[in-house]
Amino acid sequence: MKQHWLYRPGTSRKLWVLGFIVLALTIMAEPFISLHPYFSIEKLFSFHALLGFISCVVMIVFAKLLGVLVKRKDDYYDDV
């Protein structure tokens, strides 16, 4: 069967480039619109981008650490 275009070699690289262009666009658009911040912290440039990235990294790391404590093999409950 024909390989889906997403799985062709080189596609991944193009998608990364495209992704970074889109990310850059969302940041570059910020000076051209007037934000209506409710909190002073929002006035920080690209605050929402930073919040999105940092909070996700924190959640992934936290989940990984919690995983050490709570993860078990998926047949854990089978023998009860």
Binding site: G19, L23, A49, G52, F53
Partner: peptide, 10 residues
């Protein structure tokens, strides 16, 4: 879009 796309980057 900033919030969501940068979480996608993460």
């Amino acid at each position: 879009l900033q919030l969501l796309l940068f979480s996608g980057l993460a």
